[in-house]
Design a binder for these strands. Structure first.
Lengths: 190, 190
DNA sequence: GTCTATATATGGATAGAC
DNA sequence: GTCTATCCATATATAGAC
C-alpha cells in the first residue's frame, strides 16, 4: 500500500464532523474535544490542521460560499430575464440540497457567531448579489422581502423534513421550489 | 419614599437584559457575569432570582408562549372560515410586533438550546396548533409548508429591518402581513 | 501527524456573611 | 437581596516528545 497507516485525510473528516456538530448542537456548545473524540484523535491533533476553532467554522463556510458565488457569476453572465431568474433559483435549490440540511441549520443557528468572523462580510455580499440578480433593479422593499422569503423557503423545508409528520424530504423540496418560484414570479405584485 | 433603596425589580430587569443579550449574542455565549454586570449586581444576586441559567431562558419564553397560546384559544373558539384565518394571522403579527425583533432573533438563533428545555415540547405543541388552525384539515405537506413560510415571513421582515438598506420597520411589517395573507389564501393551490 | 501534559481562562453554581 | 469568596468542571490553546 502506498497509503501510510497514519490518516492523512483528518482535515476533511474534521470538517465533516464539525459541520454536523455545529449544525445540530451549535458552534459555541461544541468543543474541540468532542470533535476530536469522534475522529478518534486528540484535541492537539486538530491544532495541527487548524490554528483556531474559528478557522474550522470559516473553512466550512468557505466551500459553501464559493458554490453560491459561482451560481451568481453564472447568472450575471446571462441577460436579465424571467428564465434567468428561474434558473438561478433552481441552481440555488440544488446547491442547498447538495450541501444538505446541516449547512442550512449551521448558518441559521450560528448567525451571531458567524457575524463576527472575517468571512461574514463576504457572505453578506454574496447573498446580496443573489437578491440583486433575482429582484428587478430598483425593487421596492416589499419586493425584496418576497425574494428573501423565497430563499428561506428551502430552509423552512429542510427544517420541516427533520420532523416525522411533515412528509418526506423529496416532497418538501419540490414544494419549496414551487413556492419559491411563485414568490419571485409574483414579485411585481408586491 | 415607600420604595426601598435596594432594587426590588431586579428579576424583571434581568429578564429584559437577558432577552437582549441572548438574542444578539446567543444564549450559550452570554454569561451570567455579563448579565449581572449590566444590571449592576453580581452573579450571586442573580441566583437569588433564578435557580439556573436555563430558568432565565425559560422564563423569557414563558410569557411569549402564553401570548401565542391565547391567540390560538381565541381562534379555536370561532368557527372555521377564511375570516378566522386572517384574524389569527393579524393577531399573530401584532403579537410578534409587541414582543419585538429580539424575541424573534432569540428563538431563531437559539433553537438547539431551546430544544433541550422542558418548555420546548410546549412550544412545539402551540406552534403546531397555530398551523392546524390556519391550514385546512387534512392539508398536504405542501400546504402546511405554505403556512410555515407565512409565519416565518414576520421573522424575515424583522431581520431585514435590522439592515439599513431594506426600508423602515413599519413598511416591512406591512409587507410581511400582506405576503403572509397571500401565502395562506393561496394554500388550496399548493 | 499525533501524542501526553499543562498553562490559562472562564463558565455555572454554592456557602455563608451582612 | 446582595455581597465576597470559592469550588469544580470544562474550554481554548500551547510545549515538547515521538
Amino acid at each position: 500500500m502506498t497509503v501510510d497507516s497514519r490518516r492523512t485525510d483528518t482535515r476533511e473528516r474534521a470538517l465533516a464532523v464539525a459541520l454536523e456538530l455545529f449544525a445540530q448542537q451549535g458552534y459555541s456548545v461544541t468543543s474541540l474535544r468532542e470533535i476530536a473524540e469522534r475522529l478518534g484523535v486528540t484535541k492537539a491533533a486538530l491544532y495541527f490542521h487548524f490554528r483556531t476553532k474559528e478557522e474550522i467554522l470559516t473553512a466550512i463556510l468557505r466551500g459553501y460560499l464559493d458554490g453560491i458565488a459561482a451560481l451568481v457569476a453564472e447568472a450575471e453572465a446571462e441577460p436579465r430575464s424571467p428564465e434567468r431568474q428561474e434558473r438561478l433559483l433552481r441552481r440555488y435549490a440544488a446547491h442547498q440540497e447538495q450541501w444538505g440540511s446541516d449547512l442550512a441549520l449551521l448558518v441559521r443557528q450560528n448567525a451571531t457567531e458567524i457575524h463576527d468572523l472575517p468571512i461574514a462580510a463576504e457572505i453578506k455580499e454574496v447573498m446580496q448579489s443573489v437578491i440583486t440578480v433575482v429582484a428587478p433593479p430598483g425593487a421596492t422593499a416589499a419586493q425584496r422581502l418576497r425574494v428573501r422569503t423565497a430563499l428561506t423557503t428551502f430552509q423552512v423545508a429542510a427544517l420541516s423534513a427533520l420532523r416525522d409528520d411533515e412528509g418526506d424530504e423529496a416532497e418538501l423540496r419540490e414544494a419549496a421550489l414551487a413556492l419559491a418560484l411563485e414568490l419571485v414570479r409574483g414579485e411585481t405584485a408586491g
